[in-house]
Write a protein that binds this DNA or RNA. Structure first.
Length: 551
DNA sequence: TTTAAAGCTAAACTTGGCACGTATGCCAA
C-alpha cells in the first residue's frame, strides 16, 4: 500500500474521531500522523520492515501499531470498528468545502444527518438554520459546496494513473515477453483520466488476467469479445487493455490514444493497418502528431500546414524554482534537495520556503531568512555545479502587499508570491490583489495562481485578461505548478497567458525529495497548451535566467 | 496520541477570516 493510501485511512480515522467528539489532541495526533506519512520520502512499508517507523517524529507507539495493522491487512481495523459506531458516510460530508468535522458532528447528533442527500434534504426544508451558529450565509455556502462536489467526475488523477499505467504495462510486457504501452488519456497527459488504457501486442488474455490478478490484485476482470480486457485495480481505478498485433499496432495506437474527437476528425479508414503511428499518419499525408496535441484544437490543420509547434520536452528543463525545505514545512534539508537536483541534472534550483504569514507552515520572518541564507551559502560551497537561489514563497496579503518589507525582498535572489488565504474575495478585489503582487518590482513568479486542488477545491476567480496584461507588462512569470493535485495554471489558462505575452515557469513545489519528480506532469500541461521551451523560463540557460532576475 | 520531562503526569496548537449575533466557534492555510 502506498504512503498516500495509508495517510488517507489515518486522516479518515481522525475525521471520524472528530465527528464523534473525541479529544482534540487525539484527533490532531492522527491528522499529524496522516500528514507525516504523506510527506515521508521512503515507503512507509520500508520503515516498518527496518523497525524505524517509531523513530519518525510525530509517530509514537499507537500510530506505529495502527500503521503496521494497515499494511498487514490492507485496511484499518480501528477505522472499520469506528464505522460500527458512527456512519462512514459522514466522511462524504466532510469533503464538502467549508464544512469540517465539527460541523458534521453537530449535523449528525442534532439532526440525524448521515450523508450528503440527507443534508440536501435538510437544506430544502430549512432545518439547518435551527442550529445555533448556522445562518443563511452558511446554508448558502453549503449549497455551493454540494454543487461543487456534484461536478466532480470521480476520474483518476494523472499523478496516480500514469505511474500505474507504466507499472502495469511493464509487468505485462515482461511477463508475456511482448510490447505493452499506455495509450488513451494517460498518454495524452490529461489532468484526470476515466480509465487507464493500455495497448498490448498479444491475443493471450488469460496470461494478462493472471498478471493483473497476481501482481495488481485486480478484481472484476472481464474479457470482452472485442479484443479487450477490463479490470478494477484497487486504490487506482478501472483499467482497459486493448489487444493488438504488430501489423495493426500503429493504427490501433492512434485509435486508442484518442482523443475520440481527434480520431474522428482524422478520418483514419478502418481498413488502414499500419505498424507504427508515423506510418498511419503518413497514409493521411500528415506528419506524426504528439499525443498531447490530439484534442481536436486545430492540430490536424497545423500538421497539414507543417506548422506544428516544437513542443517543450522534459529533458529541456534545467531547474526548479519552487521547493520547500525543513526550514518551513518541507521534509528534506537544503543539502538533500541540492543533491537530488544534481541527480536530476538541474543547473539551478530555488529554495522557496513559506513566509511568516503562513504560520501553520512554520513560515520564515526576515531574521530566519537571513539565517537560512547562511545555510544555503554553505551548501552552495559544496556543490559548485549547481546554482542555488535564495528565494521565498511570500504571502500576498489581502491588500495586495507582500508579507516581507521591500528591503527584505530585495535581499532575495528570487521572489515567488502566492495567495494561501482569503481567496474567495469578490473577483474584482481578488484581481486587484494579485495585480498588486505582480506590480511589485521584487516579485518574479506567481505560484499556483488559481489555488485550485483538482476535484477538491475550485479555482479562484480572476479577471484573467487584466492579470495576464499586468504580468506581460512587468515580465512577471506565472507558474505551472507541476504537482498533479494542483496543475495550476490549468492548460487553457496557460495557453491564454502565453498568447498574451506572459512567460511560464514549471515548478515542482516539492515538500520532500519525491516531490521533485513531478516535473513531467507540468511539462505535460505545457505541451497540451502547445508551448515550446522558449516560453518556459526554467528551460533557459543560467545566464539568461540571471538576466531575467535582473542581476 | 505524542513528547518531554522525568519516574507520573502535563502540555501540546498558529492565525485570520467569516458567520453569527454581539462573544464565540469553525474552517482552512
Amino acid at each position: 500500500m502506498k504512503n498516500e493510501d495509508v495517510a488517507k485511512l489515518l486522516s479518515q480515522f481522525a475525521d471520524l474521531l472528530d465527528i464523534k467528539g473525541e479529544s482534540g489532541f487525539r484527533v490532531n495526533a492522527y491528522r499529524r500522523g496522516a500528514d507525516t506519512v504523506k510527506r515521508l520520502d521512503e515507503p512507509v512499508q520500508q520503515l516498518v520492515d527496518e523497525g524505524r517507523l517509531i523513530d519518525v517524529k510525530g509517530i509514537g507507539k499507537g500510530l506505529a501499531s495502527n500503521i503496521e495493522d494497515i499494511l498487514e491487512q490492507g485496511q484499518f481495523p480501528d477505522l472499520e470498528e469506528l464505522q460500527d459506531e458512527i456512519p462512514g458516510t459522514l466522511l462524504t460530508i466532510v469533503a464538502i468545502p467549508g464544512i469540517g468535522a465539527k460541523t458534521v458532528g453537530r449535523f449528525y447528533r442534532e439532526l440525524g444527518i448521515t450523508n450528503v442527500e440527507e443534508l440536501e434534504h435538510a437544506v430544502e426544508e430549512d432545518r439547518l438554520t435551527a442550529l445555533k451558529g448556522i445562518g443563511n450565509k452558511q446554508v448558502q455556502r453549503i449549497t455551493e459546496g454540494i454543487e461543487f462536489l456534484r461536478q466532480r467526475t470521480g476520474r483518476i488523477s494523472i499523478g496516480t494513473a500514469l505511474p500505474a499505467a507504466r507499472d502495469i504495462s511493464r509487468a505485462i510486457g515482461e511477463s508475456l515477453g511482448t510490447r505493452a504501452e499506455p495509450v488513451g488519456s494517460v498518454r495524452r497527459y490529461a489532468e484526470t483520466v476515466g480509465n487507464i488504457d493500455l495497448l498490448v501486442e498479444s491475443t493471450d488474455s488469460d496470461s494478462i488476467t493472471t498478471v493483473l490478478k497476481d501482481r495488481f490484485k485486480a478484481s472484476e476482470i472481464e474479457i470482452e469479445p472485442a479484443d479487450r480486457v477490463r479490470a478494477q485495480i484497487p486504490m487506482v481505478g478501472s483499467l482497459v487493455i486493448f489487444l493488438s498485433d504488430a501489423e495493426h499496432w500503429g493504427s490501433d495506437s492512434i485509435r486508442y490514444t484518442g482523443s475520440s474527437e481527434h480520431v474522428d476528425a482524422l478520418g483514419l479508414p478502418e481498413s488502414v493497418s499500419a505498424t507504427s503511428e508515423t506510418a498511419a499518419y503518413e497514409t493521411l499525408d500528415l506528419p506524426w502528431i504528439a499525443p498531447e496535441l490530439r484534442e481536436h484544437r486545430g492540430e490536424i490543420q497545423a500538421a497539414r500546414e507543417h506548422r506544428l509547434p516544437e513542443l517543450v520536452e522534459l529533458r529541456q528543463i534545467r531547474g526548479d524554482l519552487h521547493m520547500h525545505s525543513t526550514w518551513s514545512d518541507g521534509r528534506a534539508s537544503v543539502r538533500e534537495l541540492a543533491e537530488r537536483a544534481i541527480e536530476l541534472q538541474y543547473e539551478y534550483i530555488a529554495i522557496a520556503d513559506h513566509s511568516h504569514g503562513l504560520a501553520v507552515a512554520n513560515g520564515l520572518d526576515a531574521e530566519r531568512l537571513r539565517e537560512q541564507r547562511k545555510e544555503i551559502e554553505e551548501v552552495r560551497a559544496g556543490y559548485p555545479s549547481l546554482t542555488i537561489f535564495c528565494a521565498n514563497e511570500v504571502e500576498v496579503r489581502r491588500d495586495g502587499t507582500l508579507d516581507h518589507a521591500d528591503e527584505v525582498l530585495a535581499e532575495l535572489d528570487l521572489v515567488v508570491a502566492s495567495l494561501h488565504s482569503g481567496r474567495n474575495m469578490p473577483k474584482e478585489e481578488l484581481t486587484e490583489r494579485v495585480i498588486g503582487a505582480i506590480r511589485n518590482p521584487h516579485v518574479d513568479v506567481i505560484a499556483h495562481p488559481t489555488g485550485r486542488i483538482v476535484e477538491q477545491r475550485p479555482p479562484a476567480e480572476y479577471d484573467w485578461e487584466r492579470v495576464f496584461e499586468a504580468a506581460a507588462e512587468t515580465g512577471t512569470v506565472l507558474e505551472i505548478n507541476a504537482n498533479p493535485a494542483r496543475l495550476d495554471l490549468p492548460e487553457h489558462l496557460v495557453a491564454q497567458a502565453v498568447e498574451a505575452g506572459v512567460s511560464i515557469a514549471i515548478n515542482s513545489d516539492a515538500h520532500n525529495l519525491r516531490g521533485l519528480d513531478v516535473m513531467e506532469f507540468g511539462v505535460g500541461i505545457a505541451r497540451r497548451a502547445w508551448l515550446s521551451s522558449e516560453h518556459i523560463v526554467n528551460t533557459w540557460p543560467l545566464d539568461r535566467v540571471e538576466q531575467w532576475l535582473g542581476r
